[in-house]
Computed example of a mutant assay.
Amino acid sequence: MLPILVDADVPADGVEQSFVRALGTGPATIDWRGVWPDAPELGLLADSKYEGVQAVFNTNDVDWERPAGDQTVFVHMTKFGSLPRAQWLAGQVGASVLGSPMVGW
Rank of each mutant, 00 (worst) to 15 (best):
R66S: 07
L83P: 00
F57A: 02
A68E: 02
P67H: 12
L44K: 05
V62E: 04
W64N: 06
Y50D: 09
G81W: 03
A46C: 01
D38C: 12
F74N: 00
V53M: 12
D61W: 13
F74I: 00
L44H: 03
V56C: 04
L44Y: 08
T59G: 02
V53R: 06
A55E: 01
G43F: 11
T78A: 15
A55L: 05
K49M: 13
V73W: 02
P67C: 11
G43A: 04
Q54M: 14
G69C: 01
D63A: 15
V62N: 06
A68Y: 09
M77C: 05
W64K: 10
S48V: 09
G43S: 03
T78M: 13
E65I: 05
T59D: 02
G69F: 03
A68K: 02
Q54T: 09
D47T: 03
P84K: 01
D38I: 10
A68N: 02
E65V: 02
E65S: 14
A46L: 03
G52R: 14
G81V: 12
M77Q: 06
A55R: 11
G52A: 13
K79H: 09
A39K: 14
G81Q: 07
E41C: 06
G43R: 02
G81M: 12
T72L: 14
S82F: 13
S48I: 09
P84S: 03
L44F: 08
E41I: 00
N60M: 04
E51P: 05
R66Y: 05
D63F: 15
L45V: 04
N60V: 02
P67G: 11
D38M: 14
P84R: 00
F57I: 01
G81S: 07
L45K: 10
D70P: 08
E51L: 07
F74V: 01
P40M: 00
L45I: 04
Q54A: 10
K49G: 00
R66G: 00
D61H: 10
P40K: 00
T59H: 02
V75W: 06
D61L: 11
A46N: 10
N60G: 05
T59F: 00
F57P: 08
N60H: 09
D61N: 14
N58L: 07
K49E: 15
G43V: 04
